[in-house]
Design a protein around this nucleic acid. Sequence first.
DNA 1: CCAGAACTCCGTATGATGTACGACGATAGT
DNA 2: ACTATCGTCGTACATCATACGGAGTTCTGG
Lengths: 247, 247
Amino acid sequence: MPTEKSDAERSLALLWGAQDRPNRGPKPALTVDVIVRAAIKIADTEGMAALSMRRVAETLGVGTMSLYTYVPAKAELFELMVDTVLGETPLPEPGPGGWRAWLERFARNGLDGYRRHPWLLEVSLTRGLMGPNQTAALDALLHAISGIGLSKGEMMAVVQLVVGYVRGVAQSTVESARLEQRTGVTDEQWWTEVAPLHDKYIDAGRFPTLTAVFSAEDWDEWIDAFEFGLQRVLDGIESFVDARATS
Amino acid sequence: MPTEKSDAERSLALLWGAQDRPNRGPKPALTVDVIVRAAIKIADTEGMAALSMRRVAETLGVGTMSLYTYVPAKAELFELMVDTVLGETPLPEPGPGGWRAWLERFARNGLDGYRRHPWLLEVSLTRGLMGPNQTAALDALLHAISGIGLSKGEMMAVVQLVVGYVRGVAQSTVESARLEQRTGVTDEQWWTEVAPLHDKYIDAGRFPTLTAVFSAEDWDEWIDAFEFGLQRVLDGIESFVDARATS
DNA sequence: CCAGAACTCCGTATGATGTACGACGATAGT
DNA sequence: ACTATCGTCGTACATCATACGGAGTTCTGG
């Protein structure tokens, strides 16, 4: 019996594009890349719910089952979609401003990525298996914050902090923008439509602070929550780095 | 024709438990609450993938379609599950330490919630419709950070920062713990198993920092990334509040 | 006390979905 | 030309959410 590849091995080979090209048999009509890009396009434009193997095959003019020649299953297709998308935005170059400016640009790029591909939020990125682009991103992140006095454990924690923050806030930031484009209803429109319904249940006596904040007519400034939070996060890291440097 | 309730209205009525109890017809054998709790138990123990209407009906000894008498569709069941779970952990009481300590406890509670119910990560919480428990949480959050000199926009941004951070980092923190319990494979075991596979692809020359960090034998300290990041976030908020106070 | 209205229950049916299986045809090494 | 090897994809099956409509149950009005 030949050494059959484990799932993990097969996935990694797919992610890193290390297929052994056989020379027998008919020429493949498709490539993994074409399939992945078709899937991404569908997910981008019609949402994750519309992404089915049949649908992908249709847009490629191919029988559904043909896809399984290239991709073992839908889960692996997801992994490929994620890594492909991670590679589409170039990583920030090292530049002026040091680690802080770099992380800032990295975070903004990340948010842009989620904006372009909202379905990323529906897929867990913390699979253990890393494709080339995810690997490159992690390497670049670690490189950006190396040599500023952090231990390895702290470096990993900082990475998780930034990446986690972007994802967490992107969730709400992106979702509203997405719904706006999809349904044509502005966030504000939707709130004004739903607000009276909420008012029926939300008692000013029971939720005093909430009503005070939202009933105010002085909606002076609506802050960009992402940028605000990002600066707080970076401030927090910076003060830690400074404290570490003076000790 | 009677005023038929819109989807939003129906959802809100469900969330806030404002059903008009009809007095005609047979007594309902179930309640919405029983259904929701059964669904939560299934999602907790077997994961979101195992949660189907059939499965819920089975465990309740009821025909599948009976559930639709109580709940319009699966999406509404999700909303109910989320709000129910949000209400299960009591909100922190105001105590010593001011807003910072309160937010700290809130964040830890949040992480615990994700730990207990990992499927929360697969559901977007940013639906516009808020149930009573989500409303109470938002009110408490705003209350905790009111009166420290933040504008309303900044208060909302802080809320999003904390909530978003918890969710973002919980994603990775929780997922590993979950897989460990499910598959019986420790995170560490899994990495040592997969590491050699990765090594085949990860070139030390191409990813120098990564290999430097991971190949080191001195895995001295593995930092709790959640606690570390939480302190950074709170530091960032605190320095902003301080700066605001002195200006 | 009873007929009909209002309501719950649920069997059946429909149309999705992911994917296992295997027949068929194309290709290239021998 | 033969045969091992591969790509293609029709069919099939299990599972899913849920629309529909009939049967059974309970309360109300007369």
